[in-house]
Design a binder for these strands. Structure first.
Length: 290
DNA sequence: TCTAACCTGATC
DNA sequence: GATCAGGTTAGA
């Protein structure tokens, strides 16, 4: 299930393998997966590849003629180069024919993934990109604090909200919260500056480590050339419910937070409460120093 | 804030 | 044969 590190790994590979290539033709094999904005007739092909960008989990391939292909892999989407040895995979829905005889294919068994071909929209005015919050990887601790502090929401769903902050999914939110020692149901506004800074550091470390390891492979994700990621070996909590906490040796617990499967350590990630004029809010306990 | 919907494949 | 997995959106 691709999150920021997995998408970044795909982006890097594409930037290299599409260098100096042109896109000649697009074939849609299944309706609804690829859409055109405004229409297919407006597409200006062939078009030279200019570069691959990413915002959160959204991949943006830029082409000549003010054209951009947005790719969201969602849960099971995958880009690959079919060839004589490895023909089209089942559930291949879109083919991008390049001018060097290669084809870049998009397959997605569950068909959650989406591709949008934008024509004539300046890159910085693409609505799907602009509606996303700042990218989780290129965000200062100050901005991170400003995003979290005023919100009266549980921290896990807040971090998963792509409008607030883009790139984090279930795996990396659980990992980051564990590393920072924060309970997934902790109300964001109740977190101290110190703890939000610690969470920011945790997010950075977790994402960078994951990128270095080529992402996590749980069920579906394979890198661009079909290789599996390695980061799942470093997971402290995700997929480890019932196992020993690597910090305290206690048992990791699985629960639902905002309808999402959540694994955490009840001992290392305790709820903390805000102090106002010496009193705990609504009878809650007072925050202990981090 | 919550639920359902979108989907298939893996697993129980 | 039922359940679960999870990113995102729409709608209550």
């Amino acid at each position: 299930m691709p999150e920021l590190p997995e998408v970044e790994s795909v982006r890097k590979s594409l930037e290299i393998s599409l260098e100096d290539v042109g896109l000649a033709r697009i074939d849609s094999l299944f309706p609804g997966v690829l859409t055109f904005c405004p229409t297919l007739a407006e597409a200006r092909l062939p078009a030279k590849f200019l570069g691959a960008d990413r915002r959160g989990k959204m991949l943006a391939l830029r082409f000549q003629g003010e054209q951009t292909l947005l790719v969201h892999l969602r849960m099971t989407g995958r880009l690959y180069f079919p060839n004589a040895e490895a023909p089209l995979l089942p559930h291949t829905h879109v083919l991008l024919h390049l001018d060097d005889q290669r084809t870049l294919a998009f397959c997605d068994p569950r068909r959650f993934g989406r591709l949008v071909w934008h024509v004539g929209t300046p890159f910085d005015r693409i609505p799907e990109l602009n509606r996303l919050g700042p990218d989780a990887l290129s965000l200062s601790s100050k901005v991170f604090f400003q995003l979290l502090k005023p919100r009266n929401r549980m921290i896990k769903p807040l971090l998963l909200d792509q409008i607030v902050l883009s790139g984090l999914g279930n795996i990396y939110v659980d990992e980051s919260l564990f590393r920072a020692g924060i309970h997934p149901k902790q109300i964001s506004a109740d977190l101290s500056r110190k703890r939000i800074d610690l969470l920011w550091e945790s997010v950075m470390e977790v994402l960078q480590k994951a990128i270095e390891n080529g992402g996590s492979t749980i069920r579906d994700f394979v890198g661009f050339s079909g290789e599996a990621g390695n980061y799942q070996k470093h997971h402290s909590v995700y997929g480890r419910a019932g196992l020993e906490c690597v910090k305290c040796g206690g048992t990791l617990r699985r629960t639902l937070v905002a309808q999402r499967g959540t694994t955490y350590c009840p001992h290392c990630q305790r709820m903390r409460y805000r102090r106002t004029k010496g009193k705990a809010i609504r009878g809650r306990r007072v925050e202990t120093s981090p």
